[in-house]
Design a protein around this nucleic acid. Structure first.
Lengths: 335, 335
DNA sequence: TTAGGCAATGATAGCGCTACCATTTTACCA
DNA sequence: TGGTAAAATGGTAGCGCTATCATTGCCTAA
């Protein structure tokens, strides 16, 4: 038995025109059934919907976007999504965007300025209706690309003095100040800072140093760790600050790694409730931090709320362009 | 002084044609400079690149995709990205896709079949060149949509008997078997299982029960927890299995939550090295698990490797369609 | 009756690019 | 020197949709 030629109506991905033909209406009517069903008569709508189902028609949004100049997509750029607090932010913004029919185009920069620019260009070439990114662009070129795109741009996790368009976050410098003062008021003498060397970590570091000086403490020591390293970096950092009595870790993973190393080295008090020999404060308020022993003191940041707020600013240019979501020092057992 | 009309060449987003005009070449030549610079003479290329830079031209990939029927994008569907092992998988696949010029369109299903179908339809309407998802589709409709799309589809984190196209993962049933046998060989008597009720968790549960029966143990108890709940669920689960002497937690976060609750309840041995009163094994091998005290025994899964392999199968239909990346039982202090 | 209004549908003309085939120019060799 | 191939460039058509402006019929009001 010979195979007949494949029925083109079934083999190829069906188009809106194919649906129109089958339903006996014009293409534009099919388009209306998909996008504005309320303006089509019930009878026609039914016929079209049957045809759509029979053909398994899936609208081609690429064509639709070109014709309407609306892509219903938002570009999202984060340094990294794995093992990170930024995952919460992506979750939060997705939760706002998806119900409104927007898709998220995700890109990662790995804290690399060149890669960031490449990713920004790649995102913009897809004509998203807005860009949400962690931090401000790392290069002037990147900033210029964003300005030229003439779409809402939301920078998050920091509050630049002159954002391209909008910003949602908190004052990283202040976070450093608050932790240093906390350590000082607890009578700590020799402070240290463990974190990456990206801009946000550096802002925290500056606040930390300045506040330490202001209260008359000697300058803290700074340990720079690779962003790819997780909690292990906290562990390794211990060797670099042998005589510190208080450490601000730029995220909770580092804090936990550090505390774990301290425990193994026998440098944590055994009795709960006692002041630990070395105070450690993290940032991010990971759930793990509450379960760890000692429970981890931290600067609490609501990453999901940052994401949700960013999505709202991205979709509505009338919203305030600068939202400070703040942070909170949560003192637990670790100091 | 009167404002002149805005120069249209500068105000609107420049098109390829505008670049061509400025460089004195045909539009197609500009297109070549962008996509295949090697086939354009050095001189012409220079002129065109200058024009591109001067105008700040960013190619419109929406139009390009429509014309070429290639979107250079991949749809990625995960249950959730926050606080989860799937973030590693997304990272892994991005690491393979981005250098090849592919964008990731990310969607989350929240383990909800209807939402999954909606997200699948939304993804497919953007005509991605492949779909990578965690697990097999939850509904027959979803599976049918994917089949009709005639693009590579990679299911991950499980190995369905009949994948739509390809699958990368491990045998979840087997993982349950291995943990149950491990508990049995350690002399445990009353087993329990803590996890979600999604398909992968249920497969682990089935393997766990079957292996327990096979070695003559009484049927394990199953505690179902909400997927949104993090480690806290592990803590809460303790109350539900008061008499168990071994617990398989479907992920490391639950395991850590459980261990934390056990410690607070004073039900963990004080002396390190001793066999704990209750054995706990997690899944995922979170870095935290190695830092926790006791260190957490776990079924080690390489989420990033799953992502990388999935991306490779998605881009190359010639690659084997079924990749078992396996898992490894790592026995640490927790049992 | 007749104008006016609205609901429902359609025809036409692109959106900004690339596939596909010319066409022109240059290079090279017998 | 002509002939052929390869390199460089261009013209035309169309991807699958939607914006915009008709057009058609029918209902209502004075």
């Amino acid at each position: 038995m010979e195979e007949g030629p494949p029925d083109p109506e079934r083999a190829a991905t069906p188009t809106l025109t194919a649906v129109a033909r089958m339903a006996g209406v014009s293409p534009i009517t099919v388009s209306r059934v998909v996008r504005r069903p309320d303006i089509v008569s019930a009878e026609t709508r039914q016929r079209v919907e049957d045809a759509i189902r029979k053909l398994g028609y899936v609208p081609n949004m690429v064509a639709g976007s070109l014709a309407s100049a609306r892509t219903k997509s938002v570009g999202v750029l984060v340094p990294t999504i794995a093992n990170s607090i930024f995952a919460d932010t992506v979750q939060g913004l997705s939760d706002v965007l998806e119900p409104q029919g927007y898709s998220v185009i995700l890109a990662q920069s790995g804290y690399d300025p060149l890669r960031e620019d490449r990713m920004l260009a790649a995102l913009l070439s897809r004509r998203p209706e807005a860009i949400i990114m962690v931090g401000a662009p790392l290069t002037a070129d990147g900033a210029e690309m964003l300005r030229r795109a003439r779409i809402p741009v939301v920078e998050t996790w920091e509050l630049p003095a002159a954002p391209i368009d909008a910003a949602v976050g908190f004052d990283n410098h202040d976070a450093g100040v608050v932790v240093a003062r906390h350590f000082a008021s607890a009578g700590r003498q020799r402070l240290a800072f463990v974190g990456g060397d990206d801009r946000r970590a550096t802002q925290r570091w500056h606040g930390f140093v300045e506040a330490a000086r202001q209260v008359g403490l000697e300058d803290p020591r700074r340990v720079v760790v690779e962003w790819q390293s997780g909690a292990g970096a906290g562990t390794a950092a211990l060797a670099e600050v042998p005589d510190a009595d208080a450490v601000f870790a730029a995220n909770d993973a580092y804090a936990i790694g550090l505390l774990s190393a301290l425990r193994r080295a026998g440098r944590l008090q055994a009795e709960p409730g006692a002041t630990p020999a070395i105070g450690v404060v993290g940032l991010g308020d990971l759930e793990m931090g509450r379960l760890f022993s000692p429970t981890v003191s931290t600067i609490r940041i609501d990453g999901a709320a940052i994401g949700r707020a960013a999505a709202e600013l991205a979709l509505d240019p009338a919203k305030p362009r600068r939202v400070d979501l703040g942070f909170e020092l949560i003192v637990r057992e670790s100091g």
